[in-house]
């Protein structure tokens, strides 16, 4: 087709007099890059207007949740990375020696202190601090702000051993929190406690209560990791459900096969 014919086609399109067959020809020319979309006046004008349509802006809530998640991820990354390089040993060795000496002194001091008598005051104080942390955590979990709730969940990492009250609160969060990220964080926080029977039972029960594919898949993966065979029947319920997305179903099937 010569240039004049292309131009005639474009002109007829702009006039709104194009036949169906010609429309197909025009589409081919657009696909081949012979006709540019900007040549089609009405559509170009519409496209220009569309570029100016304002879709609004997100609220501060988004910043709030994003930055708290980022802070949490940074903290996790700091905990899990350790790197050293040989050229730095010259600087590192004296520090290591100093740290080792301090450790030995600390160890001996601690040994002397605990042997002298495990002071009931210190024990009580430790207990009180732990309870205070738990109280703070439980009250933060009730907050409206997602970032506060995420903070609460992450606080459980600081507890040596969370009480039943805390694990119950985490399970409640896992089952009922409106935000998927908080629910995922709660699931993550519960992992150290999977050896406790009631936690395992609640996690199994939670499977069918979840609607988020992310949480469903995470739970299925956890069940495989802890080899919880009792979860198979619950996982099968998800497979039967129409609400479960296809991709999730295939992941769950894999989990079930591993568990059986």
């Amino acid at each position: 087709m010569e240039k004049e014919k292309f131009d005639a086609l474009v002109t007829r399109f702009n006039d709104g007099t194009l036949s169906a067959g010609e429309m197909a020809d025009l589409e081919k020319l657009i696909e081949q890059g012979v006709v540019d979309l900007t040549q089609l006046k009405d559509l170009e004008l519409l496209d220009q207007h569309l570029a100016k349509v304002d879709m609004g802006r997100p609220s501060m809530r988004l910043d709030d949740t994003f930055y708290s998640s980022l802070a949490e991820e940074k903290r996790r990354a700091r905990r899990s990375t350790f790197s050293f390089s040989f050229p730095e040993w010259n600087i590192f060795l004296p520090r290591l020696a100093w740290a080792s000496a301090l450790l030995v002194v600390g160890f001996l001091g601690g040994y002397w202190l605990t042997n002298r008598a495990a002071s009931p005051d210190v024990k009580q104080l430790t207990q009180e601090v732990s309870e205070l942390k738990e109280m703070m955590l439980l009250s933060l979990l009730e907050k409206e702000s997602v970032s506060e709730r995420l903070k609460a969940v992450s606080l459980t990492n600081d507890l040596d051993l969370a009480s039943d009250r805390v694990t119950r609160a985490l399970i409640k969060t896992l089952n009922e929190d409106a935000n998927v990220n908080v629910r995922l964080a709660a699931l993550d926080a519960l992992k150290p406690y999977v050896s406790q029977d009631h936690v395992r039972e609640e996690l199994v029960r939670s499977i069918t209560r979840q609607e988020s594919p992310l949480v469903q898949v995470s739970l299925a993966e956890l069940m495989v990791a802890i080899q919880e065979k009792k979860s198979v029947s619950e996982l099968k319920k998800l497979l039967k459900s129409d609400k479960t997305p296809r991709e999730v179903k295939s992941r769950i099937e894999e989990s079930i096969n591993t568990l059986i």
Binding site: M55, G56, S59, L62, T65, F66
Partner: peptide, 21 residues
């Protein structure tokens, strides 16, 4: 990104959640 999601679903809270995700 928010504009893209909001254009798709017209739901502010949902769009913010999707940007976050």
């Amino acid at each position: 990104l928010y504009g893209f999601f909001y254009g798709m679903n017209k739901d502010q809270e949902l769009s913010e959640d999707l940007v976050q995700n």
